[in-house]
Write a protein that binds this DNA or RNA. Sequence first.
DNA 1: TCTTCCATCACGT
DNA 2: CTAACGACGTGATGGAAGA
Length: 424
Amino acid sequence: MERERLIFHIDVNSAFLSWESVARLREDPAALDLRTIPSAVGGDASKRHGIVLAKSTPAKAFGVATGEPLAQALRKCPSLVVVPSHYELYVSFSRKLIHLLEDYTPDIEKFSIDEAFLDMTETIHLFGSPAETADAIRRRVREELGFTVNVGIAPNKLLAKMASDFEKPDRTHTLFREEIPSKMWPLPIRDLFLVGGAAQRKMEAMGLRTIGDLARCDLELLRSQLGDKYSRQIHRYANGIDDEPVEERAAVNKGYGNRITLARDVSDTETACQVLLSLAETVGARLRADHVLCNQVCVELRDWRFRSSSHQGALQFPTDSTSVIYEEACRLLREFWDGTPVRLIGIRTGKISDHAFVQMSLFETEQDRKRLKMEQAVDQIRSRFGTDSIKRASFLKKDSLVEHAASRHKHLGHSEEGGSYENS
DNA sequence: TCTTCCATCACGT
DNA sequence: CTAACGACGTGATGGAAGA
């Protein structure tokens, strides 16, 4: 029989909002701490990016929820202070956190920008009891980095994640096997990881309300409603079973995408293609930065009624070229779009392969080589002087429908400086 | 009949 | 009071197409 593992889950409390506060306080120690007032990080409603990305605890008391429209949040809480987001800032805080956590184990899984799993099985003896160690981590994060985290302690990732979610902020919680019935089973079914709105509705229709109900329910019954694989998964979760190891995330993604909600609906192909170019710029640059190629391009649309559609195509050869991706995206768009006004346009690439392992195609021409060199040069200038320093010619003329979609890397928020196009 | 492709849905942060 | 609303990445699913 193998030994029980000891897993920690670290979760930054109100991550974007905390980090926003810390940065402001660093800038001006006398500044108001956003965490102490009803506040939120959110997009710009006038550009139709108006949702709550993160909220303070006082805002939560007003019923403000992550993901809800700003207008709705402001109705619940008229005094809500809304600040824009700065994704690069969050990336740097995230890195600092991971760096600190590396003092406790080399076995770390960065789960998202503000969450990580630590396998402490082999290293806990160096530090003391699990709870003491977790508290030490919290204290160090608080004192050295200026924000707070929750730590969940458990024998596996699922339980550790459930535990870190219990009471916030700045708390340590355990969820050992013997605590499952008292701490996890009474919770509403929706609180279980992987149970979203759709699954919740189906299960409630079956009379399942709590995680305990699910844990004890008949698997066959579940299957008929929720499908084979998924049923097995959440049934195991409800019983606290999860054997997934803590693993460093793969260096490369399975897909790279970029999409943007436009300031107003678009119904002509020309404008749509300009948007596609800006999206292709970002996606291509990210592929090149990661030294990977894609062999598939998918164009996504969301129309004025919020109906989504997509269309994908395979490429002749793997590529990381902005213009190849752009051309294919335009072709796909013309192929399936009927001109219904759209509020969102996106590009996703797939079938990713490692550049080093892909032979240079025999059909590659001298022009291709030149174009690639040019794009690489552009990427370099961008990374040195900022993403706005170079714009394609066809990009300069049109009015600012898309602020700078090209500058948004995996960007959650909106673009912050509502600036002009012609930079340097 | 067994894969692969394709579009959509669901779920997480 | 009226429909107010992100940007990702990942995986499942079911039908169609292909071998």
